[in-house]
Design a protein around this nucleic acid. Structure first.
Lengths: 107, 107
DNA sequence: GCAATACTTAAGCGTATGCTTCACCAACCA
DNA sequence: TGGTTGGTGAAGCATACGCTTAAGTATTGC
């Protein structure tokens, strides 16, 4: 998932797909690389669940799947708020115990 | 950023740091690899802005920086809602134009 | 001062990643 | 029917990544 979003080309592809579905060659058009490379990126995106696609005739149409995006968002959000809560507690602790916290407020 | 979160070990380290600051060796303790490897992961996390650290005496203490997490979260969230809005519009369109959308509602 | 601790840095190594080329197949269409 | 379009799959290659070992530096405690 994060692996899939790690590559800038793939992020571009996701951004493009957020503007609407696209065929493989439409996706490839703005990118400075072969169709083959784009297809390989697409495979990674599909494996990660970020993108789905179906073939109709000879053209494959791709679109994003927000489920995966949602879960990545949740992962980050949970970690972030966890830390921010901790940070608040630390603030409160420091306000009450003004000096020499030789043993920190671990846990 | 996403690059940094792409590695499972680094995600573990971030999770650990969300429970509170830790020294390099505390961070390394639960991981089945050398201190050296952990330090290298740490460097990636610091470059990405996900983690900050400072050295006091001979021990380096690390903590997460929510700024970076926040911006990753925003990126995902923006893309996701963008797509979901589009999806809603498409639903409305289909409800009003029941047949043969030979030219899709692109844009 | 001396040893232990807590990193730090550099070199090396195997595997994964991102890309290309080339050959190929399946629609479409003039 | 034959050429063009749109995509697929395999092979190969250069570079990046994750890790190890090994040698070194800067604190800390006795």
């Amino acid at each position: 998932m994060f692996q899939a979003l790690a590559d800038p080309t793939r992020r571009l592809m996701v951004e493009r797909l957020c503007d609407g579905p696209a065929s493989v060659s439409e996706l490839a058009a703005p990118l400075q690389m072969t169709l083959s490379a784009v297809v390989q990126h697409l495979a990674v995106l599909e494996e990660s669940g970020l993108v789905r696609s179906q073939k109709q005739g000879r053209v494959r149409t791709c679109q994003v799947d927000t489920q995966a995006l949602r879960s990545a968002e949740r992962w980050i959000s949970e970690r972030r708020t966890l830390w921010e809560k901790r940070f608040d507690r630390l603030g409160a602790y420091l306000a009450e115990n003004p000096e020499e916290p030789k043993e920190g407020p671990q846990t």
